[in-house]
Amino acid sequence: MFGSGLALALFAGWYGFPRILYRSETQPLQFSHAVHAGEKAGMACGDCHVLDAAGRFHGIPGTAKCAECHSAPLGDSKEEKMLVDDYVTPSKELPWRVYSRQPDNAYFPHAAHVALAKIPCAECHGPYGQSEAPRVYEVNRITGYSRDIWGPNISGIASHPWEGMKMDRCVTCHATHGRRDGCIDCHK
């Protein structure tokens, strides 16, 4: 009986809990990084995800950026038609869910990591640039953060270096590179 209680708790905690903790949301558009970054379009990350001269990173580009190429459908994909009809033509912004969005109190300077330390995008964001379609976006019901911050594994153990974007990940990397930072270097 003790054993079955144990098993029950373990099952509920490891299997059921993450399913209750996270809520799934779908992205507004099935955007394919593979098509854009692949041979066909041959774009680099920095073409859309711009780091400006003031050192500000502009994350996901606005609809205006999409419209530079997609003012009218280039191909015959259903998603592209949706982009043009629902967003580009009425010039409406896409309500993207950002997997890597940190809370307001965290400050991550892309300039220092990309321009100065020359860290490739994939080192933190994983092979997302080759994805065919966006993953399901999961949000923590308590904190409101993206699941990517904690990482896909509920135990918090990462099986790939880019999994998990909690503070300890930053701290570990900074420590290995001999950087000594204060809290307010990454908090605002």
């Binding site: 003031a54 050192g55 109190n105 300077p109 300039a111 321009a115 605002k188």
Partner: peptide, 28 residues
């Protein structure tokens, strides 16, 4: 970032401006 109830706060020489200055330098 705005502070929540129940915590202490104080001047930090406008750290947000130091962040911006650092990022500007880093971009160069």
């Amino acid at each position: 970032s705005p502070r929540m109830r129940g915590v202490a706060e104080k001047c930090n020489f406008c750290h947000g401006r130091l962040h911006a200055a650092k990022a500007k330098a880093a971009a160069k």
